[in-house]
Simulated assay, not measured.
Amino acid sequence: MVFDQDENLEAELTAAVRQRPASQSVVDALREHALKSWLPVATHPRWPEFSRLLDSTPVLREYAKRMWTRHADALSAAIADDAGVSHDNLACQALARFVLEIPALTRGRPDHRAAVEELFDLLTHGWRPPTPSEPQARLPAPQ
């Protein structure tokens, strides 16, 4: 079976929130957890082969996504408990979902660490329009 690394994922995710140092934010704790848990998977020598298998098999790709995102409720509840709000708090649910999408969003990126850091920077600092690396040609205005 190709999905054998899921055993303790939910417990580790919730522990990242619940057992973090008091001085560490939830987002920073989840960043640390993602770097510690996701980077070893993404940099494993067999990861490119597994990733190609997922990309070429829509059923496996969907299954992998469901396997990962099924922890959204537990992670969202841990975040809500930490914030002292209801488990149906939209911001807590959105944060949990976003964090759980990180493997899918970073898959195929040449630098997994940089991709994870960029996603957590988005959470920490908010969205800012990307800056083009080189000027793009503008289309003429319709007449």
Score class of each variant (00 low, 15 high):
R20D: 02
F120V: 02
A16K: 02
L53R: 01
E117R: 10
L100P: 08
K65V: 12
T43C: 15
P48T: 14
E118Q: 10
W68V: 15
L122A: 07
P103V: 01
L54C: 06
R109P: 07
L123S: 06
H33N: 15
R20G: 02
R107I: 00
C92Q: 08
P40Y: 02
A78W: 02
R31V: 00
R20Y: 08
N89Q: 14
R46E: 14
E12M: 09
E101H: 13
G84L: 06
L53M: 13
P45I: 11
S86H: 13
L123W: 05
A77K: 11
P45F: 15
Q24Y: 00
A15I: 01
A83E: 09
I79K: 06
F98E: 02
I102G: 07
L9F: 03
T57S: 07
V41I: 14
A80E: 00
N89V: 00
A74E: 02
N8I: 03
H125F: 15
D81N: 11
M67W: 05
V99K: 03
L100K: 05
W47R: 12
G84T: 13
H87K: 15
T69S: 06
I79N: 01
I79Y: 05
S37A: 13
A16W: 10
E12Q: 10
T124D: 04
H33E: 14
A83H: 08
W47D: 09
V85P: 00
W47S: 12
A15N: 09
D111G: 01
L53W: 11
V26F: 12
G84M: 10
F120K: 06
A34Q: 02
R31H: 11
A16Q: 10
T106W: 06
E62C: 02
R113K: 11
G108D: 05
G108Y: 01
M67Y: 00
A115F: 04
S51F: 03
F50G: 05
V99C: 11
L54T: 03
S23W: 12
A94C: 04
V85E: 12
